[in-house]
């Protein structure tokens, strides 16, 4: 059975190659620290579950130090000239879309179709992790296909990928670090403390104030935690269930659904949701770190107001 560990091994392999290529790149401005960063990340992906947890904790501190103090930077890229790219664009035309479409196509296939194929009674792909496995295998397939179709050589392709990966390394690391901060917050009881503070200090025996407190609380809490899933159990146990549903008799269906979507409005507003709001800034090479959040404010705030009204109307 193809499981998530195999995809992690694939990623580990890529990071190990990046470490090796950085090490060999004598013109790289941060050669050693960049190589160390990718090597540590390769270790975490290749052997993370077999290493003692405290040593992985140390590795995380190492990764953060390397990325946080500017140790990982992109080197000089010998990119192809614009004229060569234009010519190749005319030569391949729409065929250039095929490898790019290979990824979503394969991801859907791996989450819906492949787990149903049984080999010796075992599903071909772990059914619980279909789309992540599809993402990994589809990416590898797209790479191989793109190389074959265009006749591009491996080394310049990897160098170009390394240039992008070096420049977004810190942003790519951030979602993992934020998930880690979320674990620390929940183990330290930050969520329950905040919910307690809210419920103890607000007299919520009328519909509108209770709806406001729950919807805005979900949004605010999601801004803090970066994840509506982390906010939901805390806010619903604090306000949604005991006050809205049990005391005021609201319909639990709309309370939960619209409450969660109020949290999603918070996701649009926070740098803590790094994979949605910070990673694209790096991918699109935008100069303002908060450019994506800025582009979302004018959608998130009116939508949050809509959620409050919808919950008030639909839940009662």
């Amino acid at each position: 059975m193809i499981a998530l560990v195999h995809v992690y091994a694939l990623a580990g392999l890529l990071f190990a190659v990046l470490a090796y290529l950085s090490l060999k790149d004598s013109e790289h401005p941060r050669r050693w620290t960049t190589a160390a960063f990718w090597a540590l990340l390769a270790l975490a992906f290749l052997a993370g579950e077999r290493m003692p947890a405290w040593s992985m904790g140390l590795a995380v501190l190492g990764l953060a130090t390397l990325a946080g103090f500017g140790g990982v930077k992109a080197g000089r890229l010998k990119s192809r000239e614009a004229a060569a790219r234009e010519a190749s664009a005319r030569r391949f035309g729409h065929r250039l879309f095929l490898p790019a479409l290979c990824l979503p196509g394969f991801t859907v296939l791996a989450s819906l179709g492949l787990p149903r194929i049984l080999i010796a009674g075992q599903p071909l792909v772990d059914p619980a992790q279909g789309s992540l496995i599809g993402l990994g295998l589809g990416s590898a397939l797209a790479f191989a296909y793109a190389l074959r179709m265009t006749g591009e050589a491996l080394r310049p392709a990897l160098d170009e990928a390394r240039h992008t990966l070096d420049s977004i390394a810190w942003a790519a690391l951030l979602p993992l670090l934020l998930a880690m901060l979320g674990s620390v917050f929940s183990k330290a009881g930050v969520g329950t403390t905040v919910a307690q503070l809210i419920t103890e200090n607000l007299a919520l025996d009328q519909r509108l104030p209770a709806v406001l407190a729950y919807a805005l609380g979900m949004a605010l809490f999601t801004v803090i935690m970066g994840n509506a899933f982390a906010a939901f159990p805390v806010m619903t146990a604090g306000i949604g269930l005991p006050i809205l549903v049990q005391r005021l008799g609201a319909d639990p269906g709309p309370v939960a659904a619209i409450g969660m979507l109020s949290g999603y409005c918070g996701t649009l507003l926070t740098p803590m949701a790094a994979n949605f709001n910070i990673v694209p800034v790096a991918l699109l090479e935008l100069s303002d770190k908060h450019a994506v959040i800025r582009a979302q404010v004018a959608t998130a705030l009116p939508l949050l107001a809509c959620n409050v009204l919808l919950m008030y109307w639909l839940a009662f």
């Binding site: 790219r85 190749s88 391949f92 250039l96 490898p99 790479f143 793109a146 392709a157 990897l158």
Partner: peptide, 10 residues
């Protein structure tokens, strides 16, 4: 990596 190939190829 796949994206890098495609972007190199225009």
């Amino acid at each position: 990596p796949a994206l890098a190939v495609l972007e190199r190829q225009g």
